[in-house]
Amino acid sequence: MVLVGLNLRPALSSLAPLLARIQADTGLSALAIGALTTLPVLCLGIFAPLAPWLSKRMGPEVTLSLALVTLILGLLARSAPFVPLLFLGTLMVGAAIGVAGTLLPALVKRELPAGADLMTGVYTMALCLGGALGAGLSIPLAEFWSGWRPSLASWALLGGVALVAWVTLMPRTPRGTTVATPGGSMRDLLGQPLAWQVTIYMGTQSSLAYIVFGWLPTLLLQRGYSESEAGWLMAASVMVQLISALGAPWLARLGRDQRPALLLVLGCVAAGLWLLLLGPLAWRWLGVVLLGLGQGGSFSLALTLIVLRTANSRLAGKLSGLAQGGGYTLAAAGPLAVGVLLQLKVGMVAITATLLLIVAVAVGFAMLAGRNRRLDVDPEGRLATR
């Protein structure tokens, strides 16, 4: 699971530092580049709800294997010297990550029910590490391979390692067994306010994450940083996420619910964004640390909420499909909005205000989703919030 998690972010974070080179080489407009950053996030939302359906028919283990194969093929396709394949490969990458990322919380809940929240922090830390590697190594790999295409393709090697390890070591559901765990219907789940509160919190915090993945280096270039320094500042921020990704679920256990932990991490996100985009240049490293701590913690807690707000693994799988499907679809609007703002040549103040508004919406839904509530199925088979 950790090796799989390590592959779910480099495909996204490795693209942002190379956007200027891709645009110069392909002649794509700023709006087309914005669409390129939005496409994988939109695919996360579109394909995530398919994960429970595929898992029911093929089993979660086989479905995750196919997702890794699709990820590898997508990474190779988008590095081909043909612009339509750049978009097709990016679509495949987003679809694969959407399915794989949705399956992991349910697998954790099934395999390690007692420590599901802490294990969620462990594989979230792997996601953050993968994101940091993608952001930090993209430019060095492009220099080493003398081009951005081989730099993007090189991440398929990491996917191959994860695929071999997963096929070899994955848990195997015995054939012929039936799952008696009640999960309720998706229609019932859609009628639960708690499910939507988790979904919108997931969407707003993910929107901020993919804005950072897609546009932070570009925004930092506008502030006067070099291409290399902008890439490393983003990589450092993603690397700091390792600390809070692992620590936030532990911190959330200290209180009666997760609201104090959610407030803390979202406050760090707001402070980090302001310092990096509007604050004094001398404070950029403080901004990097705060942004990293906030985003690592907010994402880890978003996945933890999926586990904590459900009574069993089937419910966790369905809530994961809804929260990540609906959440990532909502999140896709963030990178696209920043692309439009840059196309309109608005100032950094307006862009920062837009990001802080998204943080404020995330805080509102975090206060609802963070309460001590849980989705469960009563003896009559009806879904209820307890």
Rank of each mutant, 00 (worst) to 15 (best):
L28W: 06
L28I: 14
L28S: 11
L28G: 11
L28F: 01
L28Q: 08
S29N: 02
S29H: 01
S29V: 03
S29M: 03
A30Y: 11
L31Q: 13
L31P: 01
L31E: 13
L31K: 07
L31F: 05
L31M: 14
A32Q: 15
A32M: 14
A32I: 10
A32F: 12
I33D: 04
I33T: 11
I33S: 12
G34I: 10
G34C: 15
G34D: 13
G34F: 10
G34Q: 15
G34V: 14
A35F: 15
A35M: 14
A35T: 10
A35I: 05
L36Y: 00
L36I: 06
L36G: 03
T37G: 04
T38G: 05
T38L: 06
T38N: 07
L39P: 02
L39W: 04
P40T: 09
V41H: 01
V41S: 03
V41Y: 00
L42P: 04
L42Y: 01
L42N: 00
C43E: 06
C43A: 14
C43I: 10
C43N: 03
L44K: 00
L44Y: 06
L44P: 01
G45R: 00
G45S: 11
I46N: 03
I46S: 10
I46H: 06
I46T: 13
I46K: 09
I46W: 01
I46A: 13
I46P: 08
F47A: 15
F47P: 04
F47Y: 05
A48G: 10
A48Y: 03
P49F: 02
L50Y: 02
L50C: 13
L50T: 12
A51K: 10
A51H: 04
A51M: 12
P52S: 09
P52H: 05
P52C: 10
W53S: 12
W53E: 11
L54H: 04
L54Q: 05
L54M: 13
L54K: 03
S55T: 04
S55G: 14
K56G: 15
K56E: 15
K56R: 15
R57W: 08
R57S: 14
R57Y: 05
R57F: 03
M58L: 15
M58K: 06
M58N: 03
G59V: 08
G59N: 07
G59S: 10
G59D: 13
G59M: 12
P60R: 13
P60W: 01
P60N: 09
P60K: 08
E61V: 13
E61Y: 09
E61M: 12
E61K: 08
E61D: 14
V62P: 01
V62C: 02
V62F: 06
T63P: 08
T63Q: 07
L64R: 04
S65T: 14
S65L: 09
S65E: 09
S65G: 12
L66I: 09
L66F: 11
L66T: 02
A67T: 05
A67Q: 07
A67L: 05
A67K: 02
A67V: 05
A67D: 07
A67E: 10
L68S: 02
L68E: 00
L68G: 01
L68F: 04
L68K: 01
V69Y: 08
V69A: 07
V69H: 09
V69M: 12
T70W: 12
T70A: 15
